[in-house]
Amino acid sequence: MAKVVIDALLARFPRIAADPYQGPGGDDVVFVRKDQIVEVCRFLKTDPGMAFNMAPYITAVDYLGQEPRFEVVYNLYSTSLNHRVRLRVKVPEGDAVLPSVCGVWRGADWFERYCYDMYGIRFTDHPDLRRLFMYDEFVGHPLRKDYPLRGRQPLVKERELTEPYRGPGAASPDQA
């Protein structure tokens, strides 16, 4: 079923979509160039033969050490035709900016905020590009592979460690 989608994509966007392959679980995957992602998505949504009316999951991957470093993955689903396709978009580290697909699927809003929060990939024309999970004072992007594993950034002052075996804060005499 999804073979039809891949063929249509390759026929319509020969210079934008490339390298299709069949992923595990029968999902078909195609690489898309990042500047034209909105056109491809709009075609996939509006064309009656495609009818991808839902973007259940949009996420990003950090391939640290490779070039280009990042990748944004769009998982699309059609509830009327019951088929899926996955678009992979390579994003270089120096220019980690993508056009937003919020105009195509409104539900992409929080997924793109998630990608911005966790990976630092920015989306142009996004209505409200803020952090989704972390707080505004947080520095860096925690799901990047070069972020330290325990890089905590506490918001309130932590109490001093006085008893190493019992945790911070010695019990005051009244509390003993």
């Binding site: 109490r159 945790g167 509390q175």
Partner: peptide, 22 residues
């Protein structure tokens, strides 16, 4: 009490870092 197995960037390692616990 201690943060449990969430030893990561987001989790407070026990509430006694912030308030005293009985």
């Amino acid at each position: 009490s201690t943060g449990g197995f969430y030893d990561n960037y987001a989790t407070m390692q026990g509430i006694d870092r912030v308030i005293p616990v009985d």
